[in-house]
Design a protein around this nucleic acid. Structure first.
Length: 558
DNA sequence: GAAAAAGGCGCC
DNA sequence: AGGGCGCCTTTTTC
């Protein structure tokens, strides 16, 4: 494996450092240089400051990169990793790496807005990170985590580049059916306007703006309805003729503002929905999204995600990812046994641990989220005796958090400190013992969930990293644009866009990648990660039993 | 008048 | 007194 670090130099130039040799080239020659090295051996690992800055222009030039080391992600991760000697990360320019945030998705990628990032020496930081990992007692796990994180960054850039196939005509028909024709800028669609009229009439409140909470609350109270807030769940239980149109209004208004015509204009181009992903954007290591709303891909508009002609989606999600991860990381063989099979909760019932599936779910979710009362809290107590290792692990993580200690994921990602979380709530001074105790308990719930959610994110990273490699090999005989590729990923779910003839091979690849991820994380303790997999023409049809590729997309096709 | 906060909803 | 996010609108704050 050859490591080549790439640094940006002033004046549109790039410095490539390969072992002892340095090469200074024009930015315009970069794609050809990278392509040549990739074609040559495929044994190069590129080390660069930020995949989101380097990779999109390479992809645009038709260059695919096999593997990389994302120094920004690596630095951020190692800085918070308890098993890393922090002194090894310090040195020339290290404070710049400390300050490096994610690059803006819309920023021009070839021209930096951040001057300091322009002069960062990637080779210096790369050497520090390698030394820091090598010196750690957890070097193998940290190495795996950095590799997975960097692969994830490649996946993110590739998914934005490829985009989710999007039928604007299907989406617009859906909007028209529900809302009416597209209204002029600033106006409500016909159907919404009609519902507003209904609501105003029912509450005898002419001029009421249902989007205004104070106005709406006042109108509800005038009608004799005692309600503390205007949430749909609070309104649903009320008995008044105005409630039904109001709920309908809220639902459609949300569709209109969040995934309406404006959203199409902004996020769909050339028949592709291109959200922006931010790997490790959440402190637990989960991805976040800073454009397009990839984290809430509403079911309402999924019918518009339709595979190209002759192509299909293979959609896969993991059943009960986090409980399975908890079984693996705690080494709880009883819970691992319950996880053998498609339904972990049913496995717990079959083992006689709980009376019903619902109890099993309540207990496990309560343990992972920190429920203290109610049905969920009671189930936790009973299940702790049955699964002491698994429940003990999250309990210990919560105690550590309450003591103000850092916790870590299986591969070594550290949680943010209690102090770092303070600044979210600056008017909550440490002086008030009551407030402080509340805050510590809240932090304990966070650390409790952190270890499971974070390790779940690590499993998912390993999954998509391995899947990416498998998909590439699957399509190696065909031309670039005929290869199966990932188009969407969200925590425990993937969508692969593939030519029909490769769909069954993709299904196998997704399954094998899940097994690989489990093996990487949990080694000897075998944990099952069963997938729900559908092959569909439209994303909306995924997960429906007995909805094969023949299921329609609603579109007019021959 | 712009920025920040808050309420609400969507996803896992 | 259940974790993590983003985004939209209105309201509040500076």
């Amino acid at each position: 494996m050859t490591r080549v670090s790439l640094s940006r130099l002033p004046g549109e130039r790039v410095l490539a450092v390969d072992g002892g040799s340095e090469r200074d080239m024009a930015m315009a020659d970069l794609a050809a240089y990278v392509e040549a090295r990739e074609a040559d051996a495929g044994e190069t690992r590129w080390a660069w400051d930020d995949t989101a800055r380097w990779y999109p222009p390479l992809l645009a030039a038709g260059v695919r990169v096999e593997r990389c080391h994302d120094l920004r992600l690596g630095h951020h991760l190692l800085r918070r990793a308890p098993a890393v000697d922090q002194q090894l990360l310090e040195g020339e320019q290290s404070e710049h790496w400390d300050r490096l945030g994610p690059s803006a998705p819309s920023a021009p990628t070839l021209f930096s807005i951040d001057d300091t990032a322009e002069h960062l020496r990637a080779d210096l930081e790369d050497a520090r990170q390698l030394a820091a990992v090598a010196a750690s007692p957890e070097a193998p796990r940290l190495g795996l985590l950095l590799a997975a994180e960097s692969s994830g960054a490649l996946v993110a850039a590739e998914m934005t580049h490829a985009g989710v196939p999007w039928r604007v005509d299907v989406h617009e028909r859906l909007l028209r059916d529900l809302l009416g024709p597209r209204p002029p800028r600033g106006a409500r669609p016909q159907r919404l306007e009609a519902l507003v009229a209904e609501v105003r009439e029912a509450f005898e409140a002419p001029g009421l703006n249902p989007d205004s909470r104070p106005e709406l609350l006042a109108a509800l109270r005038r009608a004799g309805l005692e309600v503390a807030d205007t949430r749909a769940s609070s309104l649903r239980v009320l008995d008044h003729p105005g409630i039904e149109p109001l709920l309908r209004y809220k639902q459609l208004a949300h569709l209109f503002s969040t995934n309406g015509w404006v959203w199409i204009d902004q996020w769909v181009s050339d028949g592709r929905f291109r959200p922006s992903y931010q790997p490790a954007g959440s402190t637990t290591g989960r991805w976040s999204s800073n454009g397009g709303g990839a984290l809430s891909f509403p079911a309402q508009v999924r019918p518009a995600a339709v595979a190209d002609e002759g192509w299909v989606f293979v959609v896969a999600d993991v059943a009960q990812l986090e409980p399975r991860v908890l079984a693996g990381m705690s080494g709880d063989r009883a819970l691992a046994q319950a996880a053998r099979g498609a339904d972990l909760y049913q496995g717990m019932v079959d083992a006689g641990a709980v009376a019903s599936r619902m109890d099993a779910k309540l207990g496990l979710l309560g343990a992972m989220y920190g429920a203290t009362s109610g049905e969920s809290g009671r189930m936790v107590a009973g299940l702790t005796r049955r699964y002491p290792l698994a429940f003990g692990l999250v309990e210990e993580a919560a105690r550590a958090g309450e003591r103000g200690q850092i916790v870590r994921t299986l591969l070594g990602r550290g949680s943010p400190s209690l102090g770092d979380a303070w600044d979210r709530d600056p008017d909550d001074p440490p002086g008030d013992p009551d407030a402080q105790a509340r805050y510590r308990r809240a932090y304990g719930r966070f650390t409790r969930n952190f270890v499971v959610q974070g390790t779940g994110a690590e499993w998912a990273l390993c999954w998509i990293a391995d899947l990416r490699n498998r998909l590439w090999r699957l399509g190696s005989s065909g031309p670039l644009d005929a290869r199966p590729h990932l188009v969407f990923f969200l925590h425990d779910e993937v969508v692969v866009h593939t030519p029909v003839r490769l769909a069954s091979a993709v299904t196998a690849a997704v399954t094998e990648a899940a097994a690989t991820a489990g093996g990487l994380l949990f080694r000897d303790l075998a944990i099952d990660f069963p997938l729900n997999i559908s092959t569909v023409r439209s994303y909306a049809d995924a997960g429906k039993p007995g909805a094969p590729e023949s299921a329609g997309d609603g579109g007019p096709r021959a």
